[in-house]
Simulated scan of single mutants.
Amino acid sequence: MSTFVYDGDCAFCTSCAEFIERRIPTGARVVPWQFAELDRLGLTEAECEEAVQWVGSDGSRAAGPDAIAALLASSGRGWRIAGAGLRIPPVRAAAWPAYRWVARNRHRMPGGTAACSLPQETRDRLYGPSAG
Rank of each mutant, 00 (worst) to 15 (best):
W79M: 03
I68V: 15
G64R: 08
R80W: 00
A63K: 11
E45Y: 12
F35R: 15
S75I: 01
E50C: 13
A28R: 00
A98P: 00
I88K: 04
A93F: 13
G42Q: 07
L86P: 02
A73K: 06
V102I: 15
R61H: 09
P90Y: 04
P25W: 03
A84I: 11
A93C: 07
W33Q: 04
Q53W: 02
V52T: 15
E47I: 04
A46R: 14
S74D: 13
E50M: 14
G59A: 10
A103E: 05
V52R: 01
D66W: 05
R100K: 15
L72G: 00
Y99E: 00
L72M: 06
V91F: 07
G76M: 05
R104C: 12
A98N: 03
N105K: 13
A46I: 09
V102R: 07
P89G: 09
P89S: 07
G78P: 02
R80M: 03
W101N: 02
S60G: 12
Q34P: 08
L72T: 01
W33T: 04
E45C: 10
A63N: 05
W54M: 01
R100C: 10
R29L: 15
A103R: 01
R106N: 08
S60D: 14
L43Y: 07
I81H: 06
A67R: 03
T26M: 00
R108V: 07
D58H: 06
R100V: 06
P89Y: 06
R100H: 09
R61P: 07
H107G: 15
L38K: 09
R104D: 11
R92L: 11
A46Q: 13
A95R: 00
V52Q: 06
W33R: 09
A95C: 03
A70W: 01
L86Q: 02
F35Y: 14
G78S: 05
T44Q: 10
R61D: 09
V30L: 13
S74W: 00
P65K: 01
A95G: 03
P89Q: 03
V55P: 04
A63D: 08
R61A: 09
A36K: 06
I88R: 06
S74E: 11
V55T: 06
V55K: 04
Y99R: 02
N105L: 07
G59M: 12
A63V: 10
P32S: 10
W33G: 00
S57Q: 15
V91M: 12
L71A: 00
A67I: 04
G76P: 03
L43H: 08
G83Y: 02
A84W: 14
I81W: 14
A51G: 09
P90G: 05
A73T: 04
E49W: 12
I81M: 13
R106E: 11
E37I: 08
P65I: 03
A98V: 14
R23F: 12
E50P: 03
A69T: 03
W79D: 08
W96M: 14
W101I: 08
V31Y: 03
V31P: 02
L38W: 06
A95L: 07
V91I: 15
R100A: 11
P97W: 04
G59N: 13
A69C: 08
H107V: 10
D39Y: 12
E49A: 10
S74A: 10
E49S: 09
R108T: 13
W101H: 12
